[in-house]
Each structure stands twice: as structure tokens, then as C-alpha cells.
Design a binder for these strands. Structure first.
Length: 273
DNA sequence: AGGTCGACCTGGCAGC
DNA sequence: TGCTGCCAGGTCGACC
């Protein structure tokens, strides 16, 4: 579900609500979602106060004020395929973890498929996932030279490279497909085979699509919701993802669906070369 | 070393 | 109606 734009939308929403709020109680319906023993998880978080909400790639990082000197400083949340975090006054029957807050509100973690992970850590920068992450695609240091470096020497299909979080952080299946369509590049082409001009088009497409998706508060396909429970509207602006056999918006030829590295890829064989 | 594939899970949906 | 099989936005580890 949640790729960079969805996680960033949730981050923004939580940043407006959480800082300064203290956790008064925690209900754990699904201990398997925690990367810490449940008792330690609860002990580390009860009575702690939230600080700033950060993001790296698709990982949410909820910082905690250092009110106890040796206590862990962060709660990290990876939503994986179907996770979500909602700030709400209402109870939810599908809650997997509930954080009760000192103002009567709750932070509720939901996750239909239970593939997500929550973890209390001292230092999120040291997590193996974070240490091995590629650059943030919306940062100014993600330049054409940077992208060319990532593509060089790789015979892997360009779509698979875009999905590889070690190479670029935050792009998932939806936005990889959309960026390749916008750049007019066939997802099956070897990454190293892209010309300088094509890489430039792809770079611009990645940045503009991620920015537009954040502006639309993400893409709701099935169950993604933002931190207030609202759907994202970028689904209306998808050109290829999820549109197998439908007419291409540019040339009216049918959109193709193929499988690459075990994942669906949608593209227009006429517009993408 | 670099790439691919299945496992991890649950629930919605299509087809019979 | 009810059962079965397939599919899903991510990541990791085993394997080639």
C-alpha cells in the first residue's frame, strides 16, 4: 500500500497532532507486529511524550521526548502492504495496536495483512533497513548524476531498479509504473541501457509524480487512509497502474499487464519504448 | 555479487 | 449461498 507519498501524507498529519501528546495506555491486539517483546514495548512507551514525526523512505519515525534519560528515543513504524496510523477519538474494530493519549484521543495502528512492524529503538539511523537505504528521491541531492550512477552497470530491468529501496528510497509499485509511463520508458529495459536524456526524463518524472501524489494526499486503491481517515485522490490521476486492458490515455492502445520480479507491472507498449 | 523467487499474513472478490 | 483460488501498494532471506 503505502509508498513515499502516502507515508509522507500520514507523517504530515501526525506532525500536526502528536507532538506534546503523552501516551497513557497501550493495547496490543497483535504482538507479532512488534519487533520488541510486548512487555518492553509497553514499558518503554507508557507515559512517554511524542516529539517530531519524521520519515525516511517508507519508514515513519515517531520521536519521543527525552523525559527519561536512558529511555529509547524513537518508535519506528513500517506500514508494509496494508498498515495505517489514524489519530482519532473513535474506537475501531480492526485496531491492531492502540495508543491512548492524554487528551482523550487515540493513535490507532491498523493492518489488514499484519505484515507491518513497530519497533522502539534508541537510534533509527542505525537500523539495518535505514543504513542500507538509497537516496530520498525528493531531496535536492538526488540529481541526474546520482541517478546515472545508480543505473550504470545494472542489467536489471529499470522497473526493478526503481523498486529497490537500497538504490532509491520510497518508490513502490504504483509510482514506479507511473514514472516510467511519464518518461516514455519500457519497464523491461535494462537500467544501464538508458541514455542520458532518458534518465533525465525519468528523474523529472519521479520527482513530479511523487510531488503531485503528496499534493493529492496519496493514492487510495483499497484500504489506504491518511492520519485522519481520509482517502487519497491521486488514484484519479493514474495513467497505467491498475488499468490492464483499458485504453491508454495518450494513444488509446490497451494497457499491458506483465509480471516482473513477482510483481505486476502496467505499461503502454506503444508509448513506452 | 547481483538477481529472482517464495514466504510472511489477511481479507476481498471472481468464478464455479 | 458457499466454497476455492487468486490477488494485493513491501521486505527479507534462501537460492541460483
Amino acid at each position: 500500500m503505502p509508498e513515499l507519498p502516502e507515508v509522507e501524507t500520514i507523517r504530515c498529519g501526525l506532525q500536526r497532532s502528536l507532538p506534546g501528546r503523552r501516551i497513557t495506555a497501550i493495547t496490543i491486539q497483535r504482538p507479532s507486529l512488534l519487533n520488541n517483546p510486548p512487555r518492553r514495548f509497553r514499558r518503554c512507551l507508557c507515559n512517554r511524550t511524542f516529539g517530531a514525526v519524521l520519515r525516511r523512505g517508507k519508514l515513519l519515525i515517531l520521536s519521543l521526548l527525552p523525559d527519561e534519560p536512558a529511555a529509547p528515543r524513537y518508535l519506528t513504524v513500517h506500514l508494509r502492504m496494508s498498515g495505517g496510523l489514524t489519530y482519532t477519538a473513535q474506537a475501531r474494530s480492526d485496531a491492531r495496536v492502540i495508543f491512548k493519549l492524554d487528551n482523550g484521543m487515540q493513535l490507532i495502528y491498523t493492518d489488514q495483512r499484519c505484515l507491518g512492524q513497530l519497533e522502539v529503538v534508541d537510534n533509527w539511523q542505525c537500523l539495518p533497513l535505514v543504513r542500507s537505504m538509497g537516496p530520498e528521491p525528493l531531496e535536492p541531492n538526488f540529481t541526474l548524476a546520482c541517478l546515472m550512477q545508480i543505473l550504470s552497470g545494472s542489467g536489471t530491468p529499470i522497473k526493478n531498479v526503481l523498486l529497490d529501496q537500497h538504490k532509491i528510497a520510497g518508490i513502490g509499485n504504483i509510482y514506479a509504473a507511473e514514472a516510467l509511463f511519464a518518461a516514455g520508458i519500457d519497464p523491461r529495459r535494462p537500467a544501464a541501457g538508458l541514455s542520458h536524456a532518458e534518465a533525465g526524463k525519468l528523474l523529472a518524472a519521479i520527482k513530479s509524480i511523487l510531488r503531485a501524489a503528496i499534493h493529492c494526499r496519496g493514492t487510495t486503491f483499497n484500504n489506504y487512509r491518511d492520519s485522519r481517515g481520509k482517502q487519497g485522490s491521486f488514484v484519479r490521476r493514474l495513467n497505467v497502474y491498475g488499468r490492464a486492458a483499458a485504453a491508454c490515455m495518450q494513444c488509446a492502445q490497451p494497457i499491458q499487464r506483465i509480471v516482473q520480479a513477482g510483481r505486476s507491472t502496467y505499461f503502454c507498449a506503444c508509448c513506452q519504448r
